[in-house]
Write a protein that binds this DNA or RNA. Structure first.
Lengths: 214, 214
DNA sequence: TAGATTGTTAATCGATTAACAATC
DNA sequence: TAGATTGTTAATCGATTAACAATC
């Protein structure tokens, strides 16, 4: 499934800004103000909203409360989302220990690993053996999973997750996962992100050298 | 600085595929074969290469060795890049413990934290106090840093990094960092990536419900 | 009403792709 | 030479933006 990350990232930002405006006591907002705050044009704001069936008043702009209500539901913040983390290596452990997701309605409820030594059911967030994933996911109706296993194991673990009826995977392995059409896969390639920085630092350096010498 | 992530991610993939082809004993490759392997058109491949001054032979395709040589230098793999990690929380610790970067010429050489309790100079990768960042970066001519501190501290730590003459930052804090034009900033918003998955799983579910009911 | 803002259509922009002349 | 592939130009596509009619 192909995802348009940009629009959802804009919605996240609209929401953040609107929450701040609301805190400041404002009740309505115009597309150009919101656009400025987020760094997009007013047309973009209006189009984003209109495509999602959100309408304002021709004269009075948009009601912040209405917008936030719609954004809550668009972004799925109207319910708590339970997430499992599969692969309790350094990254997986970091994710289950991070407590910042909770306030955004994302709750990491369990970890899974193939290594029995990592199993620990008495943690704040329990870690189970991978064999228990299917049962746990079914019983707790989990839809979202984070995949943080080594590259070599990623596809087979992905298959297990898909079989367990997980519908969305945030993948940290450096491979393109293959999954059915109806499963959402979003991959974060950390090494590539770092390589990106290196590439552009290099590129910039070369440009400057050229500038100086010319 | 605005980065075109797509092209560099394609270059990374070209490189991976070419390494495999080379291992299989091939010495030349056509744009359509490489394109197929990476999932892009042959025109894309040729354009990417020609824009970077890489040329092939009208009849004989591209020499794999030449391509790899160019890609090495484009991707900065012709030298080892030293990277520091600032902020040794869960994520920062995961990054300095991860050993997979090394084989790609990326070497994490030190961590920094404001908490004296996290300082430990006898680790495989030593952790110093943030106050020592400036000195360390100058002495070791570090250009690249990973920023993994809490959101509230991110901008001020970013400033410290920029002052120390770090030229590229991989940022994990959920804020838009402000930095001089000549500093490359690449941000990974993990929470947003997870929200993305949630959004599209929701969207897909609604679509299916609608399909079924209609 | 006059003025201002939305909602939407048409124009623009950038990136990708198709097509084909050049040429090995 | 005939055939095949590059390198590049023109066409296409999707996303963003400008512009403006509708209307509060």
């Amino acid at each position: 499934m192909l995802v348009n990350k940009k629009i959802i990232s804009r919605f996240s930002q609209y929401r953040e800004v609107l929450l701040k405006f609301q805190e400041m006591g404002l009740s309505k907002i115009f597309s150009n103000v919101l656009g400025d705050a987020v760094g997009v044009t007013s047309a973009q704001v209006r189009k984003d909203f209109s495509l999602h069936g959100i309408s304002g008043n021709k004269r009075g702009g948009y009601q912040i409360e209405d917008l936030l209500h719609e954004l809550r539901s668009i972004l799925g913040k109207d319910k708590v989302h339970h997430v499992v983390v599969v692969g309790i290596g350094n990254l997986g452990r970091a994710l289950i220990q991070y407590t910042g997701f909770d306030k955004e309605g994302i709750q990491i409820v369990a970890g899974f690993d193939i290594d029995p030594a990592k199993v620990n059911k008495r943690n704040r967030i329990p870690v189970y053996h991978l064999d228990e994933l299917n049962k746990y996911v079914c019983e707790n109706q989990i839809q979202i999973g984070v995949l943080a296993v080594p590259d070599a194991a990623a596809q087979s673990v992905c298959n297990i997750m898909v079989d367990s009826d997980i519908k969305g995977i945030l993948n940290f392995a450096q491979i393109r996962l293959i999954a059915p059409e109806d499963v959402v896969i979003n991959s974060v390639f950390l090494q590539m992100e770092l390589e990106n920085v290196i590439y552009f630092v290099n590129a910039m350096e070369n440009k400057c050298t050229r500038c100086r010498s010319s």
